[in-house]
């Protein structure tokens, strides 16, 4: 039962006495106490648990917490600039009213954020490739795509071709 130290959203957390096989997901939710990262399948199939490890999207249900030691973990709570300034993807999600139940959306935004951090002008197939690990049981895919385009345009300073409102 090791003790570990994790850096989550720029803050250090001392986590005591966890089982060595504990997935990062449950440490984030139960021990760190950030519940925006969701559990959907536990098997790497749904993407609800997506977080960034050193900027790369991972399924936190399928990554051991111990393997995140020494890396920067970013969760949905850590992507906004601050309380008042959201990430362009978060803004676009609100503008396009993407969520239905909303349960998958943190994971969707984390996958999209990783994509846009490397490619601010993604093609449809870039979007498909980055997003097809994320299930949305409510099937909000049409709006997710539109919101990613809107955010990409905003980030790259190009406000054309955002695919309309909402």
């Amino acid at each position: 039962m090791p003790d570990i130290q994790l850096e989550v959203n720029g803050r250090n957390y001392d986590i005591k006495d966890i089982a060595a096989d504990t997935p990062l997901l449950w440490v984030i939710r139960d021990h760190v106490g950030l519940v925006g990262t969701k559990y959907g399948c536990g098997g790497g199939y749904c993407g609800a648990c997506t977080v960034h490890l050193d900027g790369n999207p991972v399924r936190s249900c399928s990554v051991l917490a111990t393997s995140a030691v020494g890396k920067k973990v970013t969760t949905i709570e850590g992507v906004a600039v601050d309380d008042n300034v959201l990430h362009p993807l978060q803004e676009a999600w609100i503008e396009h009213d993407v969520p239905q139940c909303g349960y998958c959306q943190a994971g969707q935004i984390m996958s999209a954020a990783a994509l846009l951090s490397k490619n601010t002008n993604p093609t449809d197939s870039d979007i498909d490739a980055a997003m097809s690990g994320n299930l949305c049981r409510c099937a909000t895919y049409i709006r997710i795509r539109r919101a990613i385009r809107t955010a990409a345009a905003k980030i790259s300073g190009n406000t054309m071709g955002t695919g309309g409102s909402v």
């Binding site: 925006g36 906004a80 993807l89 009213d97 969520p99 909303g102």
Partner: peptide, 14 residues
């Protein structure tokens, strides 16, 4: 067209 009232909380992981 009105965006969902919980959307801000949803997208910020509250």
């Amino acid at each position: 067209r009105i965006t969902g009232v919980d959307n801000r909380k949803i997208v910020t992981g509250q």
